[in-house]
Write a protein that binds this DNA or RNA. Structure first.
Lengths: 328, 328
DNA sequence: GTGAAAGCGCTAACAG
DNA sequence: CTGTTAGCGCTTTCAC
């Protein structure tokens, strides 16, 4: 691997000059030409490790998400990438797998690799960002808030829960149940709160176990839906707290011949790969990609030196009564 | 940020001893205790950048994929992660977005960040691995082969294409069309070859434009399906070359009231988030997760010094006539 | 505008 | 077993 010293020697200049050429500092035209030529002939690539060590930061942004298999998060990742790339940053995706431990490990890596910044969708509410913050690293939270005083971009979760529930009621369903994620996850409990808002805290549903906290996964949706169908009286509609829960619930319903609209379904979050009939399922679309771009923009501002107080931005969602399979 | 020098001073030992403690080299028990205590009180974290610079390699593996939004690849990523984690490596995911340029950029980063190795699903067949290989980096290809002489793990694509086509014929469909990805992508052309194998190169379908090369995306499936339905005579069944193509095709069919099995559909690749009726769609399941674990294992072997000739492993796929939504 | 030189934080000889 | 020391490749004052 060629170094600046070899390039310098070949070009007949000092290593400092080579460095300057690759960092945009002014260098006389002829020397620059010589350097570039030498660099090319030696296949020189700047060593980022050395550069980071010297500069104390790299040009890469860490994006830590709880579930790499959930399209919601990968769509968000796309958003982050799009804006980061344009600003000259690369983003590396880390899957915490909803594990606090793995998450801590990746946070540690981001720190000790001198990464430029991190965007994290916290796996739990116990995430500890203090080591990074003490080191003056920039971190922005997405999807879920943290205890730390940092920039944050979230969805209007409670509102989404309300909209989904109301849509089902408006469609004439009588007993609207709710399946959501782990109670310890903010998005899950907030969406459930939205459901309660509409039904009323003392309604029959809320009393009768029509609210199920499950895992944010397809299998969680399946199990919860089965539980709901075993109830007496059973619900005639359900609000699914996220996309995967929605898929699981619909799968079970379809298997039992209760394909929507025979049984009402509203899901919070898009169903990007579904093949369902249009208009059968209500979707409260969450702008995952937009969340990603917003978070990336906020991080970039910080990296550029912006030091205004921490901001929280809440993204509006969009009620879609029509085709659940529509492109997002 | 604390350094080993500060820890050394506080613990009353030399920096080398601190380094040894954090690298598993033998150190007397009392000194080790002193070092750990000092490290903890200073919140010391080893600086990976410095370590990589010195050691000339890091403990992270780069995984470069062409589409982060495709569950096929994220499932593969899960597989890679699972085995890498256990071996003490972290994996960072890079999305090349099917762009040769972005891919090159990430390859460059992997190289200049001294990463331990890379696993790449090539965006195009023109991928140039020589810079990495010249540097003696270990790279394994997944999903698609390269011109370089490296380890590679692939699916039995042609066989999958054959199986899908045959299943449709066995089910009684008469005119089986095929939608596949860009002809320049190996998996796409191979799966189409499988389709041709079954129908016969001089069959009516093959002559009549019943094979469409599209993009490996939902919208590509939609467009191709619309084209096929406009044909006269129109096909009565279709083989979709990958999961997203399958989703797009089924969406269009459903919109036109041709929900399978009214129109036959066989897809190469799983449909993890679909909500379709069981048994309506034939799926040739591709073991994406397994591909990931296999690739990671091969890479790890190389990192441990294995230098046997490059191997290519081809994974068997599995024909699933039943529930397309089944868990993989 | 350019070069010399001093590290960034760590590991790995090399002595002891 | 332990300390001293010389860099890994780069950027960046500081003089010229």
């Amino acid at each position: 691997m060629a170094t600046i010293y070899e390039v310098a020697k070949l070009a007949g200049v000092s290593p400092a000059t080579v460095s300057r050429v690759f960092n945009g500092t002014k260098v006389s035209e002829d020397r620059e030409r010589a350097v570039r030529k030498a660099a090319k002939s030696l296949q020189y690539t700047p060593n980022r490790t050395a550069r980071s060590l010297r500069r104390q930061h790299s040009e890469v942004i860490a994006l830590i998400i709880p579930d790499i298999e959930n399209p919601y998060f990968t769509q968000m990742a796309r958003g982050v990438e799009d804006v980061a790339q344009k600003a000259g940053y690369s983003v590396v995706l880390c899957n915490s797998d909803s594990s606090q431990e793995k998450e801590a490990r990746y946070l540690d890596i981001a720190m000790s690799e001198n990464m430029a910044g991190v965007i994290v969708a916290p796996a739990t509410d116990k995430i500890d960002l203090s080591p990074l913050l003490n080191r003056n690293m920039h971190v922005v939270a997405v999807d879920r808030s943290t205890l730390s005083d940092i920039d944050c971009v979230m969805m209007a979760n409670r509102h989404a829960g309300r909209a989904a529930t109301q849509a089902l009621l408006d469609a004439g369903y009588q007993r609207v149940a709710c399946i959501t994620g782990p109670a310890s996850i903010e998005t899950a409990s907030e969406r459930a709160e939205g459901w309660k808002d509409v039904l009323g805290a003392d309604s029959a549903q809320v009393r009768d176990g029509h609210l199920i906290y499950s895992s944010y996964r397809v299998v969680g949706g399946r199990e919860a839906m089965q539980q709901l169908l075993a109830l007496d009286p059973a619900p005639d509609a359900v609000v699914a707290g996220n996309n995967l829960l929605g898929v699981g619930a619909i799968q079970v319903l379809t298997e039992r011949g209760l394909t929507p609209p025979a049984f009402g379904v509203a899901v919070v979050g898009s169903l990007p790969f579904t093949t369902l009939t249009p208009a059968a399922v209500t979707v409260v679309r969450l702008p995952a990609g937009h969340m990603g771009t917003t978070a990336a923009q906020m991080l970039l501002e910080r990296l550029r030196g912006d030091s205004q107080p921490a901001r929280t931005v809440v993204l509006r969602n969009e009620l879609v009564l029509a085709d659940a399979a529509a492109v997002d």
